[in-house]
Design a protein around this nucleic acid. Structure first.
Length: 303
DNA sequence: TAGCAGGAAAATC
DNA sequence: GATTTTCCTGCT
């Protein structure tokens, strides 16, 4: 079906979909094309209108508006995070970038694959897994694959997952899928809690056991930010750590700063992550996650 | 807690 | 072409 979604608040489709928060979108001709909500969605921005084509009525204007969080007041968010020159420059440059509301299981599974990989590689791994384990369907004469159900990956063989180029990530993905398939991960409960508690719950610290192998603090923060509506979540990857070291040295503890300078590597020890996360969230406030996304784009664009 | 391995693709030289 | 790096976590 074809439909249009009017934009009443700033939005940049390009910056939003190219910001590394999601992995199943690509440019095909004039359209951004993705498989979301179990359907194909093609989107093109023409000024303050989004032109859309989807493979089902289920993915219509209200679905698109919810997915891109179009009813939320971005200007308010950006005013809130613009606390210094570095972030203000990033906001001006990538104005209209929005955090989107992704499927929770897909987001979790995708970021389990993200360790020690770059964005093109993550996208490749995700597509390979979808092609092998996701339900195939046809749209406009082409074959697409839905994101696999948790059970499909839980039932997979680790060796077959490795065949998708996952390497050591294969057993982690299978275990995470099994936990989700079994119902051990209550995403609804996670999403309903305040950030700190939701993070603990997702990491299963509340239950005293670690059910989710392959999900550390960074992956947990990505899942909370991109799929659970925790806008203050601030995932810290190597790029963000570099950006912080350069533009926000006062937010980084002196001992961590000294270590970063000493060996040049931006590898955060377990305790470092928690401290840095708290200090950055304290600085940027309730929309720290947006600040993270804009800073990520800014530092990446320099490379 | 600090150090290291992991596994393959992309980026860089 | 070889080497380094890569949106990190788990193990020792």
């Amino acid at each position: 079906m074809e439909f249009a979604v009017p934009l009443s608040s700033p939005f940049s489709l390009e910056h939003t979909l190219a910001s590394g928060q999601t992995f199943r979108w690509s440019m095909r001709g004039d359209w951004w094309c993705g498989v979301v909500g179990g359907e194909v969605l093609k989107v093109r921005q023409e000024g303050d209108i989004l032109k859309c084509v989807s493979s089902s009525d289920a993915v219509g204007a209200s679905w698109v508006s919810d997915y891109f969080r179009l009813d939320e007041d971005l200007e308010h968010v950006l005013a809130s995070i613009s606390r210094d020159e570095a972030i203000t420059r990033a906001v001006e440059r990538f104005y209209g970038l929005r955090l989107i509301r992704q499927d929770r299981w897909e987001c979790l599974a995708s970021f389990v694959l993200a360790t020690n990989a770059n964005i093109p590689r993550i996208a490749k791994m995700v597509e390979a897994v979808c092609a092998k384990y996701g339900e195939a369907f046809e749209f406009e004469g082409e074959v697409y694959h839905r994101f696999p159900r948790p059970q499909a990956l839980a039932d997979s063989r680790v060796s077959a997952l490795r065949g998708c180029g996952l390497g050591y990530r294969a057993p982690f993905l299978k275990k995470v899928a099994a936990s989700v398939a079994k119902g051990d991960v209550d995403f609804g409960a996670v999403a309903s809690l305040p950030y700190e508690e939701s993070r603990r719950l997702l990491l299963r610290e509340l239950f005293g056991e670690k059910v989710l192998l392959g999900v550390g603090p960074k992956v947990a923060d990505c899942v909370l930010l991109y799929s659970c509506g925790k806008d203050e979540s601030f995932p810290i990857d190597v790029w963000i750590a570099r950006a912080l070291a350069r533009s926000y040295p006062w937010l980084i503890g002196s001992s961590l700063m000294a270590r970063l300078k000493r060996d040049g590597k931006v590898r955060l020890a377990a305790g470092d992550y928690a401290k840095l996360s708290a200090s950055v969230r304290g600085y940027f406030g309730e929309y720290a996650g947006y600040a993270q996304q804009y800073l990520f784009m800014a530092i990446r664009s320099e490379a």
